[in-house]
């Protein structure tokens, strides 16, 4: 790149709404460096929402999953064993055992 075509770089802006919230990507801006990017970040993207912390990241420093690999992120729908919905029978079992116990005690 020649000297006179030199321009600002893209910085991605992330912010955190509260101390327990995760950082969320907001948008990107053009800036000459991190310091100046930070002075403009909040007012460009968080004028009406709270922010307790801000990150600015030079876009060139983000390694992105290549577009042709993104379709491979799709998973088969056979992972119920990882999720609570895979254990839907538990409530009924607990109810059954409670009833069994109560019936036994009532019979005494």
């Amino acid at each position: 790149m020649s000297e006179n075509k030199q321009t600002f770089s893209v910085y991605e802006v992330f912010s955190q709404k509260s101390p327990t919230a995760s950082f969320t990507h907001q948008f990107s801006l053009l800036a000459p460096n991190h310091e100046v990017a930070m002075t403009m970040a909040r007012e460009n993207f968080m004028r009406r929402e709270p922010a307790v912390n801000i990150w600015v990241v030079k876009r060139d420093d983000i390694y992105v999953l290549p577009p042709e690999e993104r379709p491979h992120l799709e998973r088969m729908d056979n992972k119920a064993y990882r999720e609570t919905k895979g254990y839907g029978d538990l409530q009924a079992k607990w109810r059954y055992h409670k009833e069994q116990y109560e019936r036994k005690n009532a019979a005494k």
Binding site: L29, L30, A31, T39, M40, E43, N44, R47
Partner: peptide, 11 residues
């Protein structure tokens, strides 16, 4: 001098 700064300055 720069669109982003225009926005920031206004606040």
């Amino acid at each position: 001098p720069h669109i982003e700064e225009d926005v920031a300055f206004s606040s």
